[in-house]
Design a protein around this nucleic acid. Sequence first.
RNA 1: GCCGGUGUGGCGAAAUGGCAGACGCAAGGGACUUAAAAUCCCUUUUCGCGAAAGCGGAGUGUGGGUUCGAGUCCCGCCACCGGCACCA
Length: 845
Amino acid sequence: MNHSYPFSEFEPRWQGHWISSRAFHARNPEEVDFDPKKKKRYILDMFPYPSGDGLHVGHLVGYTATDILSRYYRMRGENVLHPMGWDAFGLPAEQYAIKTGQHPRVTTEQNINNFRRQLQTLGFSYDWEREVNTTDPDYFRWTQWIFLQLYHAWVNPASNKVEPISTYHGDDVDAVRLAYISEMPVNWCPALGTVLANEEVVDGKSDVGGFPVERRPMRQWMFRITALADRLIEDLEKVAWPESIKQLQRNWIGRSEGAEVIFTIKENPSQKITVFTTRVDTLYGTTYLVLAPEHPLLDQLQLSPAIKENLKTYREGCSTKKDLERTDLAKTKTGIPLGVEAINPINGETLPIWVADYVLMHYGTGAVMAVPAHDERDYEFAQQFQLPLRVVIEADSELALPFSLTEGKAINSPLVNGLAAAEAKAIIIKWLEAHGWGRGVMQYKLRDWLFSRQRYWGEPFPIVWEEGKHRALSLEELPVRPPEMEDFRPTGTAEPPLAKAKEWVRYSENATRELNTMPQWAGSCWYYLRFCDPHNRQHFIGKEAEAYWQNVDLYVGGTEHAVLHLLYARFWHKALFDLGCLTTVEPFQRLVNQGMILGSDGQKMSKSRGNVVNPSEVIKQYGADAVRLFEMFMGPLEHSKPWSTTGVEGIYRFLARIWRLAMKEQGPGEWSLSENVTETPLTSAQQKTVHATIKKVTKDIEALSFNTAIAQMMIFVNEFTSAKLCPLEALQILLQLLSPFAPHLAEELWSSLAEKFPSLKTVAVLASQAPWPIWQEEYLCFEEVTYAVQVNGKVRTRLTLPSTASKEAVEKAALAEPALLSHLENKKIEKVIIVPGRLVNIVAS
RNA sequence: GCCGGUGUGGCGAAAUGGCAGACGCAAGGGACUUAAAAUCCCUUUUCGCGAAAGCGGAGUGUGGGUUCGAGUCCCGCCACCGGCACCA
C-alpha cells in the first residue's frame, strides 16, 4: 500500500524504543532516580475486561485523552502515574470456557496478550512495569486480604466509622460485621446459575445476557454498605465529578428523611404496625393503613376464615407475579380489606387495614399510612375501593385532589393547625417520640451489597465453615487459589460449581471451604491502589507509595460505571481509610466520562448492526497517530459522536502535511529532510501564530478540549504550508505541541531534524521528553487592531486602528466613518459603547 | 411522572455576554497530469437586489424577558438522549 508518509515503518519502531528505554516509567519515592521536586499526577483509565473481541474504537477515546494528558504533564516536568491492567475475572471467560472446554485461565491470558498488543500499537505511554491482572494470585491475594479486613471490621454507630471488630463489645459479633452472612431472598438467575446483586438485575432480567431472574432465599455474603450511606452521599461534595453522576449516585442511595409511626391493632393491642412516612405532618389525614403482601404481621393477625382464605389467594397471586407486572404503573391497583382496624396514635381514630401490592416490603417498613387526599397512589387506591379521604392541607386556590404542597398550612390537625409542613413535621415527631408512638428516621433505597456469586472464575473467599459457623483464614494462608477443575459448569442446583472440587472443599477434618466466589466488582474495587505499588509483597500498597500517589487526580471512563463500580470502590476506600490503611477519603478526585463512539450510521456499534469499526484495520491504513488524532478531533470528549472514515482521511492528510513541512520525497517512498527547513527568524505574523498556538493548545489540553487544540494546530500548519521557507523554530515548537497527540510522527521528525540541527538534541533527545513550550504574551499583540463597528447592535463596518488608541480616539474614528452615514441619518446618538480592541456599538434612535 | 443532559449549515463542530458557523468532512469548480491517484487553489447558512465588486434582510429547537448588545443569562414550552420509577 502506498502511504502519504511512512508511518508503518516508524510507528512500531518508536513504540519499541519507548518501552525498551523505559521512557514512561513513573518513579516511586523509594526508587533511586526518584525526583522529590516533581509534582505527582495520577491519571487513570478504567481498566478493561479483556474480551475475546479485542479492542474497540470506543475504548480508545478515553485512553487517547488520558494519554495526551499524561504526555503533556510529563513534558511539564511532572511525575505522571499512568498505568494499565486487566479486570479479568468474570462471566464471559467462564461461559466461553464451558462452551469450548478451554480453561478460562488460558483464554484470559490470550485475550490479555491481544489487548496489550493492540494498546501498544497505539503508542499509549503506559508504564507497563505496573501492569496488574485481577486473576493473578499475587493480585487476588490482596483482594482476599481486603475482604478479611472488612470481615474483621464493623461500623461503630458512636463514631460512624469503620473500626476493627475488637472495639465491638456486644455479644453477637456476626450481627455487626461489615462483611456478613445473610439468609435473604436474593435474585437467582437459573440460566446463569448464580445470584445477582440488585444492581445487576434490570427489569426482572439479568443485566448480563438478559435471562429471567427469580427471588429465592439463599445464604449469601453481604457488605453492610448501607452503614456508610450518609458518608457516600456527603463526600460527593469533596470530588470534582460531573453533576449528573453525583446525582445518579445520590438517587441510587436514595436518602429520604421521614418518620416511623406506630399504630396499634384495635382488636389486639399487643400487635403493632410501624409505618414509614415522609409526610408525618399529614398524619391526621390518614384514613386507612396498607400492608405489603409479604408483611410478616399478616401471619399473626386474627382474621375471619373467609378473609383468611381470600388473603391466601391474594398473596399467592402476588408472589407468582413477575416483578414487571407488579410494578406496571398502568395497571389498576388491587388489594383486599382485612376486617381489622388500627388506632391512629395522634387522635385515637380507628382505621381499616388493607393489604395491597402497591406497598413494597423491601422499602421502609413494608407498611404505609394512607393519606388519599395528599398522595397520588393512596388517592387512586381510595377511589378504587371507595375509601374516605380527609384534607389536612389548606390550598390557596382550587387545587384538584390529591395535592401534596409543602408550603400550605395544616388544617384539621389540632396539634399543628396553621403551620407549614416543615414545622408541623418537627412538632409531630417530637410528640410521637415523647409518647413512644414513633420517631424521626432516615430511609435509604440503597440496600446492602450482595457480594457472593455461584461461579468458578472469581476470587474464592478466604473463609472456612466449621460446625455451621464461618471462620476467617489467617493472612498467611492467602492467596486461596481456585481449585484446578475440568468441569466447572453450574451444578444445576443452588450449589456453586466449586462444590464439585471435593478435595479442595475439604479444608480439614471438620472444616470445609466457602463455595461461593466474589463478584467481578471485587478486583476493580481497589486496582487503582495496587497500581501505586504493584510489586509489593508485604502490603497491598506500601505506606510511602500510598501517601505519595493517592488519590487519583483524574479518572476517565464510561458512564456505564456511574453507579456500581464507582459506588463500590468508594465504599471499600472509605472502609480502608477508616481502618488506617489509606490517607485519602475519596479514591477519585476528578472524574470525566467520555462519550460513546457510534457507528457511521449514528447507531450504537454492535456486531448485529454490522457497523463495528476495528481499530487495527484503521491503524493499518492510516496509522496510529491518525486514529488517535481523529478520535480527539471528532468533538468534545464527553459527547457521543458517529465514526467517519472520511474524517480519518482528513486527519491523515493533516499529518501528511506536517510530514511534508519537514520532509521531501526524493523517489517513491524515499524521504529526506527538506531544504526548506532553515534557521530563518520568524516574521512577526508567524511569531504571532506560533505563540497563539502554544497558548491555545496549552489551555485547551488543560480544559480537555482536544478538538479545538487540534484545530489550532491545523491553522498553524496551513499557514506554514503556504510559506516558502519553514523556520526551524516554528517546526520545533509544532513538534513539541504535537507530541502528546501524534507522538510517533513528532518523534520521527524530531530525530530527523536533530541530525541536521544539533540544537534540538540539546533540548531533548526524544520529542516526548522535550519541555513544554511557553508562550510570550507580547508576541500576541499587534500594532493594529480591527474594530467591528455596530449601530444598535448590528455590524455595519470595520475599522482598523492602532492598538494604543484611546477610547476617545476610537469613538471619534468610528463616528467619522462614512459607511455609517446612512445608518445614522435622522438619528440622535445616545450612547457609544467601546470594548477595547474588539468592538464599538453606537446606540442611536 | 421525577432527576440529569443536549438542541447551531448537508454532516462532526467552534464561539471570556461583544463580528455566529473557526477547524474538518462532504459537495461543486479550477490548476497540475496523456490519464488517474496524490497534491494545490477557489466556492459553499439562507433569502432578496445586482453582470459584478457589492448592498440589504433573516438566522443558533420554540415563545417571552434582562441588556447598548444574547447561541451564551433568566422564565415558560417542545423534541431527543441517559438514569430512576407505586421508594410512601
